[in-house]
Design a protein around this nucleic acid. Structure first.
Ligand SMILES: [Zn+2]
Length: 289
DNA sequence: AGCTCCACCTATTAGC
DNA sequence: TGCTAATA
DNA sequence: GTGGAGC
């Protein structure tokens, strides 16, 4: 599942290959991929053909190409999206949804997405940072310069929901998904179900600091890949999955205390935690200090 | 308004 | 093998 | 992973 580190890896690759290129053609093979472009397919194609990509930006799990038209092309990978650099002669891909060709006639951008939760759309820039209007409700992510730790802690404390739900709320803090939420909570020794309002500001600060650290480490490792669904623009996997301490480790020993990790259901996804290090009460803080 | 939960898809894997 | 359920 | 429906 692409979260901040995986999206950032893809953005960097996309920038390297496509910044400065002029779009020659656009083919949409599954209109669902551009469902968030409300003006429809013809408008989507019409706005892109002839436009030049001037750069790339990212906020949380969204990234976008800035265009010389002044608008931006927003990309979200959903659960299984890929942005690949392909050559025209490459073998067809069953899950190809959108295909862009460029003025050099060699390298193409293929948006490939098995589950079709991801997509692309054109939007206008809301400010001089080119933040798309449709993303103004997305909060800054912990790796961005605009991230305000104190303000984020204050907003988290106002929530009655489980602290994990708040970490996943992109309007409070962006970029964190199921994997890095569990990793951050494990590092902070916090039970995912604690109401955010019941957690002290100091501990909320800690869990946010841990999210920044774990996502920085994951970025350096090329992201987390469990299978071939998450890959960079060249189709390669990242190496962070082998360093996960919580996610996917049901029954395996906690790397701090050796207790077998447990798996619990949260909404309709899985949560992994250590039953000893991550207990509900405040006493879980004291041990293993 | 705040919060929870489910639909949106395709594919793979586990279990009967 | 072939179906359903669970999970990503 | 996200947006929207519903309590
Ligand atoms: Zn433990």
């Amino acid at each position: 599942m692409p979260e901040l580190p995986e999206v950032e890896i893809v953005r960097r690759g996309a920038h390297h290959w496509f910044a400065g290129r002029r779009i020659r053609s656009v083919a949409v093979s599954n209109p669902r991929a551009i469902r968030r472009h409300e003006q429809g397919e013809a408008d989507f194609i019409g706005q892109l053909v002839g436009a030049t990509i001037t750069g790339t930006q990212r906020r949380g799990k969204y990234f976008w190409f800035t265009l010389d038209s002044g608008d931006v092309l927003v990309v979200h990978l959903g659960m299984s999206g890929q942005v690949l650099v392909q050559q025209a002669a490459d073998e067809p891909n069953k899950h190809l949804r959108v295909r862009l060709t460029f003025d050099n006639d060699v390298d193409e951008l293929w948006f490939v997405d098995q589950r079709t939760f991801g997509g692309m759309f054109i939007d206008e820039a809301a400010d001089e940072n080119s933040l798309p209007v449709s993303l103004t409700h997305i909060a800054p992510d912990p790796l961005s310069a605009e991230f305000d730790l104190r303000n984020t802690v204050r907003r988290m404390r106002a929530k009655q929901s489980p602290v994990k739900a708040v970490l996943l709320d992109q309007s409070v803090v962006s970029g964190i998904g199921n994997i890095y939420a569990d990793e951050s909570l494990w590092r902070a020794r916090l039970h995912w179900q604690r109401p955010a309002s019941s957690v002290t500001p100091a501990r909320l600060r800690e869990v946010l600091d841990h999210s920044r650290e774990v996502m920085t480490d994951a970025l350096a490792a090329g992201g987390t890949s469990f299978d071939s669904l998450y890959v960079n623009v060249n189709g390669s996997s990242g190496y962070f999955s082998r360093r996960l301490a919580a996610y996917g480790r049901e029954g395996e020993p906690c790397l701090r205390c050796g207790s077998p990790l447990v798996r619990e259901q949260f909404a309709n996804r899985s949560s992994f935690r250590c039953p000893r290090c991550q207990r509900r009460g405040k006493w879980s803080r004291a041990e293993n200090g």
